[in-house]
Simulated scan of single mutants.
Amino acid sequence: MLKIDKLTKRFGDKTAVDSASFDVDKPAMIGIIGRSGAGKSTLLRMMNRLSDASEGSITFNGQEVTTLSGSAKRAWQARCAMIFQQFNLVPRMDVVSNVLHGTLNRRSTVATMFNLYPTGDIHKAIEILDRLGIAEHAAKRAEALSGGQQQRVAIARGLMQDPEIILADEPIASLDPMNAQTVMEALRRIHEEDGRMVIANLHTLDTARRYCDRVIGMRDGRIVFDGTPAQLTTGVARDIYGAGADFSEAATSTEIETLDRSEPVPA
């Protein structure tokens, strides 16, 4: 389905992503891990065509993605939804209208200017919000919701595109453990129930192991690990993160149970 071949991105003399290659032969939930600056976000932005590759190619179901432009590029971005760490919602706009923004790529300029939506799209937006457990907030301003709720609104907006791939760039990095768990469970259900490919940049190993079928590790722009969650041992993690023998997974855990077992921080 998806083939990433020697994908490279340079910013001046700095190489952010260095000849990254991997294939995905069927819909899966894939976690990409690595320390900040490893190239994870740049990789996803190239896949969505928010950023152009310096070298290499992206192919999806036989279509070359890296050379698309104009309407063909916009059509690809509709098939490949992007979810961001900071939600990218319109804060003063109501929740359902934010979700309906997922249809902008197929609406006329006039309809967009006057905020006109077909009744069917409005019903679909509310159904998606209900599926994500936040339909009761449809009429509220987005800014009135918690961070976890706002991220689910962002996911709902992505689903309005009816995408084949969902790219999530650090979707839980700014959330507390309870909301992080809710968001990851929502992404996992979308993968399992809809058969959509989900690729998420993640900071923590426990999250990748619990929710993903496959884990890709990046270090200094290069892919240094590609395997199953079971193969993601502490030793492998040390290599991905460039850490020493004192590396502790518990210190980066987002699992509520792990946090409950941890010792209290001295005052």
Rank of each mutant, 00 (worst) to 15 (best):
Q77L: 04
G120C: 04
Y117V: 10
R92P: 01
G37M: 12
I83P: 05
H123V: 11
V95R: 06
T66N: 06
S51Y: 00
V99Y: 03
M93Q: 14
A81G: 10
D25H: 11
N61G: 13
M113T: 12
L100S: 01
P118E: 08
V65H: 08
N61T: 10
S36D: 12
E64L: 14
G120D: 12
H123G: 08
R10K: 15
L50N: 09
V110R: 14
R49C: 03
L43K: 04
P91M: 11
T66Q: 06
F114W: 12
Q77Y: 04
V17L: 02
F87Q: 08
I58L: 13
R106K: 15
I122Y: 10
Q86C: 03
K26F: 06
N98K: 09
F87C: 09
T15E: 11
S41A: 05
A16E: 02
T109H: 12
N61R: 15
T119P: 03
H123Y: 07
R35S: 14
G62Y: 12
S41R: 05
P118D: 10
R45F: 05
S19R: 12
I58R: 05
G120Y: 03
S36M: 09
F60C: 07
V90Q: 10
Q85Y: 08
S97V: 04
V96A: 15
M29I: 13
M82N: 11
P27Q: 10
I58G: 07
M113D: 01
G31D: 03
D25C: 02
S54N: 09
M29C: 10
L116I: 14
D18L: 01
M113R: 14
A53T: 06
P27N: 10
L44E: 05
G37T: 13
K40N: 08
A75N: 12
L104S: 09
I122L: 11
K124E: 13
T15Q: 07
T59Q: 13
T119M: 11
G70V: 07
S21W: 01
A72I: 00
A111L: 06
K26H: 14
T59P: 01
H101A: 11
N98D: 10
R107S: 13
T42N: 03
H101W: 02
H101G: 09
V90W: 09
L43P: 04
V99N: 02
T109I: 15
Q86H: 15
